[in-house]
Design a protein around this nucleic acid. Structure first.
Lengths: 194, 194
DNA sequence: CTTGATTGCGCAATTA
DNA sequence: ATAATTGCGCAATCAA
């Protein structure tokens, strides 16, 4: 495992896709949480593949994490979303559904034909956003680790310095006390000491 | 139905045979910070084995959240979907399978019927492993952040302490110099007060 | 409602 | 062969 500490080797990836700009926002290793932002960005639009595809559709089983072994093959046919919401404390009657148009069924989702261009466009955009977001997260994590490392180093230096100062201080105190004794021993003058 | 773009199931097997091992010298970003196991969040690594058949890197380090290429959408509908663009460097990999019994063709994948129990079992196991791994990663990240925070706090305390000690030290030095002067001046009586 | 950002999840390729 | 990692796409949800 060679590790490269290089604090500036996070960008070599010169993209290579059809007309797209790469917003390399790279905050150099600085203190504190660097708030990267990034913004506009050319939007993707490289869809239009040749053949229909996407057999997407089977992903609804999110479930328990903790019990890694508990009942493995329990393909709960849902729960993936775990909408533990909406079923709060139904203090009211059952007409809540009428009061909450927000929860109305798959109304607007109709145009979700996996074949529609709309769909692909949205998917592609989201994919871009996801990659971007994860990249950001990765960078953030690395920065944090780096920061922790630097802080630890600095901490040691500071500890060292403290030890040094303390020792020096003790020496001086000792010297002073000696003088104090000498002074008291042979002189009438009273001195204050710390 | 799942899918994802993906992949090559057989093709890289063929590609990585000829003796072209991936010399991916992945750099892990670990170093000091040995408190906890470090994750390999290495970056860089931008090399690229100049092989012409880098179909694999297609998803290696997906740097750049760009539209990606549209071509990565292929659905491995099920068994028998070996139709992959593997028309690359077919220089001569015919007998490779004979030369490398260890890596022989999709033998393992033989029962890759998405319907096979074997498949599901493996998938499920991997899913469990994935959840576990991610959970671990999340925990690790939080710990690192926490550690960074604590270190920063401690850092401040140490800085403070150093300032305090330094000041104290200066006082004593001053006192000593005073006594020195006074003592040399003629009177043994020197007073110090802080 | 629409869009980009996040987040949890499963898949598949790699790595150990 | 198995478990652990890791990049990626999907879909739900958040936040504007």
């Amino acid at each position: 495992m060679s590790d490269s500490r290089a604090s500036s080797v996070i960008q070599e990836w010169a993209g290579s896709y059809p007309g797209q700009n790469h917003t390399l926002n790279q905050t150099s290793a600085s203190n504190q949480l660097s708030q990267m932002d990034m913004m506009p960005y050319g939007q993707a639009q490289g869809l239009g593949r040749g053949g229909p595809d996407d057999r997407v559709s089977e992903q609804m089983m999110g479930l328990s994490y903790l019990p890694y072994m508990s009942s493995c093959l329990s393909n709960t046919s849902n729960a993936g979303n775990t909408n533990h919401h909406q079923s709060h404390v139904n203090t009211q009657q059952d007409f809540s559904s009428f009061l909450m148009p927000t929860l109305r069924a798959p109304v607007n989702k109709r145009s979700l034909s996996k074949d529609s261009a709309e769909y692909r466009l949205r998917r592609e955009r989201n994919n871009v956003a996801v990659r971007k977001s994860r990249d950001k997260a990765r960078r953030r994590i690395m920065l944090t680790q780096q920061r922790a490392g630097q802080l630890q180093e600095e901490n040691q230096r500071l500890q060292s310095r403290i030890g040094q100062l303390t020792q020096e201080l003790d020496s001086l105190k000792h010297i002073l006390s000696q003088r104090h004794l000498q002074g008291a021993d042979g002189g009438p003058a009273g001195e204050a000491s710390i």
